[in-house]
Design a protein around this nucleic acid. Structure first.
Lengths: 234, 234
DNA sequence: TTTGACGTTTTGAGTGGTCAAAAGTTAGAT
DNA sequence: ATCTAACTTTTGACCACTCAAAACGTCAAA
């Protein structure tokens, strides 16, 4: 119940969330080594942080095996992600930062922001639904974030809106930019070559091709196409 | 030269600044007990904090006598005050907080704000010259803040704009509000009774009387009147 | 089934902040 | 000139976080 989580605790919760929920090959639990890597700390530090959270019943820790979020932990993690994305939005919309700069700066002060101020900021920003990268801002006090599929999961005929992880390599960002693949841009899938072959897309009216590896690192908000919409209506 | 001041260090610098420069009866140095009171910590804590700053050459500490800012310390303190007032302005202008709420909330995250973000915020706020309380926001990288005289220092014929310290008692604020004495309001001094007697003012077209004690806790930005303007022009 | 290699946890130490209480200093009252 | 009250500083303890390195578990290859 106590909301007095430290900066380190919150970062740890976010990392556990990313590694357990967000990762591609669905893993059961995050290992302390991965968490240490993700947070840029030594393994020992990660272990003690995990123990702190386990005492608070925010994670479940099977020593030598891995770490999982409890229901409370997931809610706290999602709250931290919401906070982060709102602050990113503030940096982008009110201070004019580029979407790929916002991520870096948000981390430095999001943790000290009173909840009250987060709430007002959200309203002042006109209740945004996504961060500048295109990922959804979760509702308040929920424990889940709608997960976006990778672009490569789409099939010919599908249409979707692009999202890019904040961690994306600047070189890759530059490359994607030349293809017009920026957060918020709408794409349509034309063809998908077999055997992990490339994807052919329409981006802003122009035809583009992207490889499997890249397409698996671009996430998208899929549009519900007409057939499926009909099915849902039934 | 190092800018790595902790939250406690910055708060201490601000407190020393307020107690040495801002206080009414001009004191030579701040005592650790006053500093402890001002910051809500124990005397021992204040002493150790002062020692930390003395090692960094930001204050001069005469044990058992008092504390003074060095030139570097004054600059750091003024920088911290600038930061605080910009954040207050953000809370008031962008998030709609009342001027007397902004002070409380600013303290919680101003310390973690990257300088870069402070700078952008300042620009996004349209380079404000005062905080919501009416006190001036100092220029960047200066060591001094234009000090405002207390209302009681004015003489009949003077006109000025009101400023109220963030620490003002809510009861007093309420009382002042009924008199129309809010930050930013223009007042003209009509009469000043002798022997520390009350001051008669015009506030928003209406005549008001305030006692010496209250008038010494309202600060004002004095308007330069016509006679003096002429003198300055010569 | 023993042995490593690798990953994980524990230990010991350091930093920075805090408090309570003991020890020390100052300065005014007698 | 001494005593005493008030204040200041020091001491010792504790908390939260971190790292380096030692100790420990796990699992798969030989």
């Amino acid at each position: 119940m106590e909301n007095n989580l430290s900066k380190s605790d919150r970062e740890m919760l976010k990392a556990v969330y990313r590694l357990t929920k967000g990762a591609r090959p669905p893993l059961p639990a995050a290992h302390t080594g991965e968490l240490a890597d993700a947070l840029g700390v030594t393994p020992g530090t990660a272990t003690t942080a995990v123990k702190r959270l386990a005492e608070r019943a925010l994670v479940e820790h099977q020593p030598y095996k891995g770490v999982e979020l409890t229901a409370d932990g997931r809610q706290a993690a999602v709250g931290a992600i919401r906070r982060h994305r709102i602050v990113e939005r503030f940096l982008a919309d009110m201070l004019g930062y580029a979407w790929n700069e916002a991520d870096r700066l948000a981390g430095s002060f999001e943790h000290e922001l009173p909840q009250e101020v987060e709430d007002r900021l959200f309203v002042a920003l006109d209740r945004p639904t996504t961060c500048p990268h295109g990922f959804p801002i979760p509702e308040r006090d929920t424990a889940d974030i709608p997960e976006l599929p990778p672009l490569y999961a789409l099939e010919p005929g599908d249409a979707a809106v692009v999202a890019l992880p904040g961690s994306t390599d600047p070189e890759i960002v530059k490359f994607l930019d030349t293809l017009g693949l920026r957060p918020g841009v709408r794409v349509e899938v034309r063809e998908k070559h077999p055997f992990d072959g490339p994807l052919v897309l329409t981006v802003d009216g122009k035809e583009r091709t992207v490889g499997e590896k890249v397409a698996n690192n671009i996430y998208v908000k899929k549009e519900i196409d007409d057939k499926k919409r009909k099915e849902q209506a039934v």
